[in-house]
C-alpha cells in the first residue's frame, strides 16, 4: 500500500555490546492500530525511542510520511506529528494537570488561551474532566497514564506511540483504555501500541509486530500471530500453553 505513514528501515540500536534492536523493519499504514509485542527486554521501548527521535539508531533509517526523519530530534518529530507516551510515566509533577497538557498543545499554538482550551477538550476526551486543576503529582497512577495520553494527543499527532499505557490498570480501567484507543483511531490518528496483556490488545489491534531479542520474528493479524510457533515459544510461551491446557 502506498499510504505508509511510518516506515522503519533496517534499524539497529547497539548499547555497547548489547544489540537492543537488530535490523528492524516495519511499516505502519495510516489509520491502523498496530500492536508491538514481545517479551520484556525485546527492544520495544528502544524502537519507540528511535521512532520518536529520542535516540538516533546506530544503523538504519526512519521515514515518516515519506520523509527521512532519521536525523531529526524529538521536538522536530513531535512537530511533524509523532507523539509518544512513556512506559514509566513522566508527568510534570509540579504543574497542574491542565498545564501538563498545555505544554503539548503549545507545539501548535503560541497562545496560552488557545492551548488551554485545547488542553481542556483533550482532558475531556481522555476522561480526566474535573481533574484539570489538580497538581499532576497528586494524580493516581491510572490517572497519570491518562494524562500521558492526553499530553501526547494535545500535540495533534498523526502517529501516537503508546508504551504500555495500560500496564497496571484494573480490568475495568483497561476496558476503558481500549475504548480510548479506538476513539483515538476514530479521530483519524494512527496508533502503535506496546502492550503486555494479550487478552486486551489482541482484539484491539489490526496487526501485530512481534519482537524478540531485538529482531522482528513475526508480523501479521493477531489471530495468526497467536498461532505462530515462533511467537509461542518466544513470548507467549509457558503462559499460553498453561492457559490452553
Amino acid at each position: 500500500m502506498s499510504e505508509s505513514l511510518l516506515d522503519v528501515r533496517g534499524v539497529t540500536q547497539r548499547f555497547g555490546g548489547l544489540v537492543a534492536n537488530a535490523d528492524v523493519s516495519m511499516q505502519v499504514r495510516k489509520g491502523e492500530i498496530v500492536g508491538l509485542i514481545g517479551p520484556n527486554g525485546a527492544g520495544k521501548s528502544t524502537l519507540f525511542n528511535a521512532i520518536a527521535g529520542v535516540r538516533k539508531p546506530t544503523e538504519g533509517s526512519i521515514y515518516f510520511e515519506g520523509r527521512d526523519v532519521t536525523d531529526l530530534g524529538a521536538p522536530q518529530r513531535c512537530a511533524l506529528g509523532v507523539a509518544r507516551t512513556f512506559q514509566v510515566v513522566k508527568s510534570f509533577e509540579t504543574m497542574r494537570v491542565v498545564e501538563n497538557v498545555m505544554v503539548g498543545a503549545f507545539v501548535r499554538t503560541a497562545s496560552a488561551a488557545v492551548a488551554r482550551e485545547k488542553a481542556r477538550a483533550t482532558l475531556d476526551f481522555v476522561g480526566l474532566r474535573g481533574r484539570e486543576n489538580a497538581m499532576a503529582g497528586e494524580l493516581t497512577p491510572p490517572e497519570k497514564r491518562r494524562l500521558e495520553v492526553a499530553r501526547a494527543l494535545a500535540t495533534e499527532p498523526k502517529l501516537v506511540l503508546l508504551d504500555e499505557a495500560m500496564t497496571g490498570l484494573t480490568p475495568a480501567e483497561a476496558r476503558q483504555g481500549v475504548d480510548l484507543v479506538r476513539a483515538i483511531r476514530d479521530r483519524g490518528m494512527t496508533v502503535v501500541m506496546v502492550e503486555h496483556v494479550m487478552e486486551i490488545v489482541m482484539p484491539l489491534i489490526d496487526r501485530a509486530v512481534v519482537l524478540d531479542l531485538g529482531r522482528v520474528i513475526a508480523e501479521g493479524p493477531p489471530k495468526e500471530i497467536v498461532r505462530d510457533e515462533r511467537v509461542i515459544t518466544a513470548y507467549l510461551g509457558e503462559r499460553h500453553r498453561a492457559r490452553s491446557a
Binding site: 513531535c78 513522566k90 510534570f92 505544554v103
Partner: peptide, 26 residues
C-alpha cells in the same frame, strides 16, 4: 507565567525528556 516560554521552562524543569517528546526544544 502565562506564555509559551513559561510553560516550556517549567516543563524542562520537571522532566526534560518528556518535554522534548512534546515538542519543547529543551
Amino acid at each position: 507565567e502565562e506564555s509559551r516560554w513559561g510553560y516550556w521552562w517549567r516543563a524542562v524543569k520537571d522532566n526534560a525528556e518528556a518535554a522534548e517528546s512534546l515538542g519543547v526544544e529543551v
